[in-house]
Design a protein around this nucleic acid. Structure first.
Lengths: 146, 146
DNA sequence: TCTTGACCTAAAGTCAGGTTTAGGATTTAT
DNA sequence: ATAAATCCTAAACCTGACTTTAGGTCAAGA
């Protein structure tokens, strides 16, 4: 069993955030001794899931909904499964979009490297898109499609 | 030249957002005819860069800083280059973290599929982590390390 | 015993990034 | 020429996710 301060260090989250999560109902079974919160294995796993679902783009109220499903037992397995499948798709899409962002950034890195070497942008601008070197052209086109 | 409504459709952004960006100084050279905004190629490229930098995790005030650098000419090439290199690293890190999130989600998808098949979680919980099938064990361990 | 550090609550405050509202002006189609 | 759609501004409002404040309780070491 851990105190709020230990969990704060463990997860690198402010104490105020942990209290806020508790107030929002994320730790329904948490024990206390004379008012002081005791975080156990269950709460630690919950925090891992909160972090995961947050990073997947879910809002706290929807994470709260998941916590409620957990408390309602096996009858909600289908909802929980569907949630994770949905978030999995979301994250797969997100990663794909991030690769496009990365292509734009790669192009811009090259662009300013050239601009710095040439002392201006005119020469580069005239190269877009046909005259760009192969790898850069691919990044440019990936970033500018649609 | 395009009206705000056309740009709104083109980028799938609310008109109010475009006006908000304008008010924040993102289109310093934008023309108007009798008060009505005219978006040109420059503004379109700016919007693409805003979208890219936003998705890379940059705040609007830092994107605004970049716009100001652009207006100050070639003297700021080093700052602009450094910005894109920094954001490129950020996004590479972000993608790596998203793969870990994805591993957690894959594990949870499998978990609830099993729970649904078994009618309970006891059997699965007893398998963690040694008894898990290879691919699932890898995802579990990737998601639970540190 | 006393004091210091870690814990507690409720309620108000903060911040980013917009969105809505209210009241007009302009442009386009009929 | 008039009606409908689209544009404008300033200012107030909103949302999510915390954080800070103010005032107090608890536990462990000197």
């Amino acid at each position: 069993m851990y105190t709020i301060g230990q969990i704060s260090e463990m997860f690198n989250l402010p104490i105020s955030t942990l209290r806020y999560y508790d107030k929002q109902g994320f730790f329904p079974g948490m024990k206390r001794t004379s008012g002081i919160r005791k975080f156990g294995d269950e709460e630690i796993e919950t925090l891992k899931v909160i972090e995961c679902l947050k990073k997947s783009g879910l809002e706290l109220k929807d994470i709260r909904q998941f916590i409620d499903w957990c408390a309602r037992g096996p009858a909600t397995y289908p909802e929980r499964k569907a949630l994770f499948e949905r978030q999995r798709e979301q994250v797969e899409g997100k990663i794909a979009r991030m690769h496009k962002v990365l292509d734009m950034l790669k192009f811009k890195c090259w662009y300013y490297e050239q601009a710095l070497a040439d002392g201006g942008e005119e020469k580069i601008k005239a190269m877009i898109p046909e005259g760009l070197p192969g790898e850069i052209r691919a990044a440019y086109q990936s970033a500018h499609q649609e």
